[in-house]
Amino acid sequence: MLEIKNLHVEVGGKEILKGLNLTINSGEVHAIMGPNGAGKSTLSYAICGKDGYEITDGTVTFNGKDLLELEANERAGEGIFLGLQYPVEIPGVSNLNFLKAALNSLRKYRGEEEIAAVDFLKLIRAKAAELEMDPEMLKRAVNVGFSGGEKKRNEMVQMALLDPIFSVLDETDSGLDIDALRIVADGINRMRSPKKAILVITHYQRLLDYVVPDFVHVLADGKIVKSGDKSLAIKLEQDGYSGLGINETAA
């Protein structure tokens, strides 16, 4: 589904990713772990097409399409979703309007008709209920005044609504208490399907107790330095990155 080859990315003239390779197939859940500054967020932004992340070498293809040719919204249209570490507050835009605009943009990209207002309301209320979100929060401005947990839950509701093929979750678990973590994990697990794939980027192992990955990769200094199964995450938890010979502060 997603194939990244020899990816080099610069941010502000500084090389962050230095030849990253990663292949993710349908039905798989991958986890990328790594110390601060290893390039985890850069990878997620490069996949999703944020401005300012300059690809200096390498390729990223998604179901055979060259992703690097596409704008961020076109990548979303192809079925890619990015759950952000710090969801952005947008004063003045109601969550409901935002979600409707997003869903209809994706439909337009795929040549589908706009969703009827009534159908949309039914759909979004159902998704909010599944993820235990207070329906009142749909009326509020996007993420404004939301707690950290509420923001992440909102990301999960968006993901459930937009129903992506491939989801990248960038430290979605950071700063969450155990109840919020359970909600987030539940949201991610709902997206597991033989036709979909998920990339979980995390600093800590604890999310992986709830979302069990098929593959775990360790990212350090812009490259994947080790890959394995779930046991790699447990080993990291026990021994730390230094157990793998990675110097966290220098990374």
Binding site: C48, G49, A72, N73, L82, V88, E89, I90, F98, A101
Partner: peptide, 19 residues
């Protein structure tokens, strides 16, 4: 905010218009 909206599928013009 612009990137956030685009990452959810809104094209640049629609994202700016919403903002």
């Amino acid at each position: 905010a612009l990137f956030y909206l685009k990452s959810r599928g809104l094209d640049t013009l629609s994202a700016k218009a919403l903002l």
